[in-house]
C-alpha cells in the first residue's frame, strides 16, 4: 500500500510513453508526406508514403530500399512497388528484391547508376531536413523562421525541455533517483573544484554544509567554498570518486530505508540527533552524525604549521 502513489505515477508515465510513439509515427507520416512529394523519382507515389518517418534513423535504410523499388519499376514496371510503399518494408521483402535483382544483369547497371543518384539525392534530402540547434535558436528554431516545424522535431523538443526543466517528471517508468553528475575541475595542481554542489544539494534537499562536511570527512581532506558557491577541495579527486562518495551519502542520508523514496527531510531532533523523516511513507529514523575519525598527518610541512 505504501508504495502505491509511486506505482501509479510509474504506470501513468509508462502508459504515456507507450502511447506516444505510434501517434508520433502516425502524425509524422501525416505531416511529412506533403513535403516529400517533391519530384525526386520516377515512381513518385509509392516513395512518398515511404518517406513518412523523415527524421528518424530508419531513413537511410528506407531510401536504399526505395531505390531498389525504383530500379524494379524502371526495369519492368512492376506492380508490387505501390504495395510496398503502403506497407512498412521488412527485411523479408528486401531479400526478395535482391534475389530478383541478381537474376538480371540490367539491374546491376541500374544499381551502379543508383549509387550515383543516391549521393545526389542524399544532399537534396538534407535540405528539407529540419536542422538547427534549439538551445541556441539557430536553423529551424530561429525566432523569425517561418517554415513550419515538423511534428517530430517539436515532439523531441518538448521531451528535451521537459527532461531539462523537470527531471523527476520525465523519468519514464524507472524509479531511479537521478542527480546531475558532479562537475569536477582542477584548480592548480592540488585542488579540485566541485562546481555544481549547490545544484546537487538542492536536488537532494540537503543543506550545503551537511553535504560538504560529509564529503570532507569521507575524503579525509579539507576545503572551502569560493565566491560563486563552488566547493574547493584540497587534493586531487576525479569525478568518479566524488560520485562514489555522493552515492554513499544518498544511501546514508537521503533515501528512506523503509520505502526507498528519496523524498525525505533531514532535521535536527531532540538531544543533538539528526533524524530523517520520509515524506512519502512517514517513517522516521535517526542517522549518524558525521564523524571525521582518525586522520593521519600527511607531510612534515603541515605538521610544522599546525
Amino acid at each position: 500500500m505504501d508504495a502505491s502513489p509511486a506505482d501509479e505515477i510509474k504506470e501513468t508515465a509508462q502508459s504515456h510513453s507507450a502511447r506516444t510513439p505510434p501517434l508520433h509515427a502516425a502524425l509524422g507520416a501525416f505531416t511529412d508526406a506533403p513535403q516529400a512529394t517533391e519530384p525526386q523519382d520516377a515512381a513518385a507515389a509509392a516513395p512518398a508514403a515511404d518517406d513518412g518517418l523523415d527524421l528518424s534513423l530508419m531513413k537511410k535504410k528506407k531510401k536504399k530500399v526505395k531505390k531498389e523499388d525504383d530500379a524494379d519499376v524502371a526495369a519492368d514496371e512492376a506492380a508490387p512497388a505501390e504495395g510496398d510503399g503502403a506497407i512498412d518494408l521488412t527485411m523479408k521483402k528486401k531479400k526478395k528484391k535482391k534475389v530478383v535483382k541478381e537474376d538480371d544483369e540490367f539491374a546491376k547497371k541500374l544499381e551502379a547508376l543508383n549509387i550515383e543518384g543516391k549521393e545526389g539525392e542524399e544532399a537534396a534530402s538534407q535540405e528539407d531536413e529540419q536542422e538547427g540547434d534549439m538551445d541556441q535558436g539557430t536553423g529551424i528554431w530561429a525566432h523569425d523562421e517561418t517554415k513550419p516545424i515538423s511534428y517530430n522535431a517539436l515532439l523531441s523538443r518538448f521531451f528535451a525541455l521537459l527532461s531539462q526543466k523537470n527531471p523527476d517528471h520525465a523519468s519514464t517508468g524507472t524509479r531511479s533517483y537521478k542527480i546531475p553528475p558532479p562537475q569536477c575541475l582542477r584548480e592548480g595542481n592540488k585542488k579540485t573544484i566541485f562546481a555544481n554542489l549547490p545544484e546537487i544539494c538542492k536536488r537532494m534537499k540537503r543543506a550545503d554544509e551537511h553535504v560538504t562536511s560529509y564529503l570532507f570527512a569521507e575524503l579525509g581532506t579539507s576545503g572551502s567554498v569560493d565566491g560563486s558557491r563552488r566547493l574547493v577541495i584540497k587534493g586531487r579527486f576525479q569525478q568518479k570518486q566524488i560520485e562514489n562518495v555522493l552515492r554513499t551519502y544518498i544511501i546514508e542520508y537521503v533515501t528512506c530505508k523503509t520505502c526507498r523514496s528519496p523524498n525525505t527531510e533531514l532535521s535536527k531532533g531532540e538531544n543533538r540527533l539528526y533524524f530523517i523523516t520520509c515524506n512519502s511513507c512517514g517513517s522516521r529514523r535517526s542517522v549518524q552524525a558525521i564523524k571525521t575519525g582518525f586522520s593521519a598527518q600527511v607531510g612534515k610541512r603541515k605538521k610544522m604549521q599546525g
Binding site: L219, G220, T221, G235, R236, G293, F294, A296, V298
Partner: peptide, 8 residues
C-alpha cells in the same frame, strides 16, 4: 573504520 587518505 577503514579510511583512505591522499598523500602527494
Amino acid at each position: 573504520h577503514i579510511r583512505i587518505q591522499q598523500r602527494n
